[in-house]
Design a protein around this nucleic acid. Structure first.
Lengths: 217, 217
DNA sequence: ATATTATTCAAGTAATCGCTTAAAGGATTG
DNA sequence: CAATCCTTTAAGCGATTACTTGAATAATAT
């Protein structure tokens, strides 16, 4: 009886254990963008493939991710949308309750930039009075992006500012609230003399809100 | 830059680390019932006071609990309601995604019993056609309970069945969906020839739903 | 079949975690 | 201020974790 209770609580703890590593948070953040093969994840996160694979096994045993073999590659994805919800809530609680997390977020994201919410972006896209830029790496854009977005990865943005149709405000988006790409994108675009906003969250939240997502270009 | 990102993710991970132990899940489950001093928690969970205190420090550093000194005792509580939300979501994701957790839950809770939802319970309490029993330990009842509930801790229930007003259905509630007290209570009451239900979740969810909670008896 | 590519598994090591026992702090009571 | 009660901290130890390197497995290509 008490043993059963212990097994149950240990089971809950095992899932939390999956989230209890900065590296694995990064992995989940990657997978929240879309399904990815092991080698791409390892490359993006600059970790060895073996280490990446081992972390993925931990996540798999925790029930947080699922895998699918295609040829000689294995594609990983979040086990369900509820995993992304859990990750989002973890981050929000951490941000709200931990001064260290707030300080780290401030240091990483820099000062605040102007934001637009999802609903407002939808309205402005319908009116066509805004340019939407996806500043994530191209692979993530290919795996899924907001319809109508231009793919300009952050490291190409400065050189490609001229590609942005003139006369419109620009909205940049990235992986989510705690990803710095959109903030940096906004600063680059504003340095180019354009008005720019960041979407307040990222593609994963867009997808989970049930809005349509385009694949590839 | 990458260091800042690392610190941020490690900060998120530290919060998850707080949840990453069956013992600490139990602690949080206790604190979700209401504020408690260290010695009571340690006694309830049958652990040494030093060990309990150390786990509480881990939770405090993770930002999940807060403490308040009163005289020579220290009372701990959840840092905010969002912590209870996070715990609830963790458990639900674990239950949904992990076969081991489902098996452990089944083993601990036993087969399903009839349930009533919160809204239905509210309606039936207003109509007065139900007896509500809080089967948690008396201390937890004292720290907060549903108005109108009788306190009959599980280990006294069989002997006190006659105290239940006749002619009415009985609803038992406890700490939450994954606490076995209510299920056991229902079985005891039904063995006494009464119709009984369990509330589908527990006092913490009742409180967080904004419904009123009575303190002491 | 052999080679190649992608992933997982195994072994080793330093660091961390969870628990116990014992000592130290803090606050109240006599 | 000494005695007591409650809590925290420290030290020690076995178990687990994270990372590295190197070998094994799986599927595909030559």
């Amino acid at each position: 009886m008490t043993a059963a209770k212990e097994r149950l609580n240990d089971g809950f703890a095992r899932v939390a254990q999956g989230l209890a590593s900065g590296r694995r948070i990064e992995l989940l953040d990657q997978l929240a963008q879309g399904e990815r093969p092991v080698d791409e994840i390892a490359e993006t996160l600059e970790m060895t493939i073996a280490n990446c694979s081992q972390h993925l096994q931990v996540l798999r045993r925790a029930g947080l991710v699922a895998a699918r073999r295609e040829g000689n590659r294995v594609w990983y994805r979040l086990a369900s949308e509820s995993v992304a919800d859990l990750l989002e809530m973890l981050r929000n609680v951490a941000f709200d309750r931990s001064a260290e997390v707030r300080a780290a977020a401030e240091a990483y994201l820099g000062g605040p930039v102007e934001e637009v919410g999802r609903d407002e972006l939808v309205a402005r896209l319908e009116r066509g009075d805004v340019v939407l830029v996806d500043v994530r790496p191209r692979r993530e854009f290919v795996a899924g992006h907001i319809p109508g977005a231009l793919s300009i990865p952050l490291d190409e943005l400065e050189a490609r500012l001229t590609e942005l149709p003139a006369g419109l405000d620009v909205v940049a988006y990235c992986r989510g609230r705690f990803c710095a790409f959109a903030e940096q994108g906004v600063r680059i675009i504003e340095a180019g003399g354009r008005r720019a906003f960041r979407l307040e969250d990222g593609l994963p939240e867009w997808r989970r809100a049930g809005l349509s997502v385009s694949v590839a270009s």
